[in-house]
Amino acid sequence: MLEINNLHVKLEEEDKQILKGVDLTVEPGTVHAIMGPNGSGKSTLSYVLSGRDGYEVTEGSATLDGDDLLDLDPEERAAAGLFLAFQYPVEIPGVGNMTFLRTAVNAQRKARGEEEMSAADFLKLVRERAKSLKINADMLKRPVNVGFSGGEKKRNEILQMAMLEPKMCILDETDSGLDVDAMKLVAEGVNALRDEGRGFLVITHYQRLLDHIKPDVVHIMSDGRIIKSGGPELALEVENNGYADILAEVQ
């Protein structure tokens, strides 16, 4: 489903290469995790895939079900089925969470040539999905992420994911800033969305999130490349020994 080939990316503003040839394939129904030390390029990968400004692809490709992602605007990528759960969800004062969700759902439907969801159907669906993430009516009414706690922001990301029903979900350090209970809640939300048609790419520093969201494949990223891939045991190895051993082994 998601195919990344030899992806090279540099910062637009300065001559700094961040990704130096990333190869990655995520099949439908699988969960891939990317781990790696700070500055290895994990977040850059998520931003480049979702279309954020400030990066220049110098080589390679990224496709989603054959669509060239790099050629699309961010909203087109979203409509094509890509979703990024932000590490730092953005506060948008003045825009109600509900309005935001409904605008997004209907914009994607429109882009795919589908009928817009009626206000009643939408309301029913959002209430149901919000409830399982313990998002109350007040959080739905408030401006997007404004005054939300760290945990509430992350749960709100998962709610968006649940409403938009993307094919390919990228979770960028969704565990950062969460206590154990909040992490469990978020992980449950993600697990509820796991199905055979959907792929996940979970970016994290720590193994503990992967206790709750069990990955099929774990990749270690360092200095802009994936240097090692393996099963869930690879995450445990990192947890026990840190990255030093793996880095030494590869070099």
């Binding site: 979702s50 954020r52 400004d53 605007d73 909203e75 979203a78 979703f83 948008i92 994607q108």
Partner: peptide
């Protein structure tokens, strides 16, 4: 930042 967030959810510019 807000603009990218909205667009990343499928809302056109």
């Amino acid at each position: 930042t807000g603009m990218f967030y909205l667009r990343s959810r499928g809302i056109p510019e």
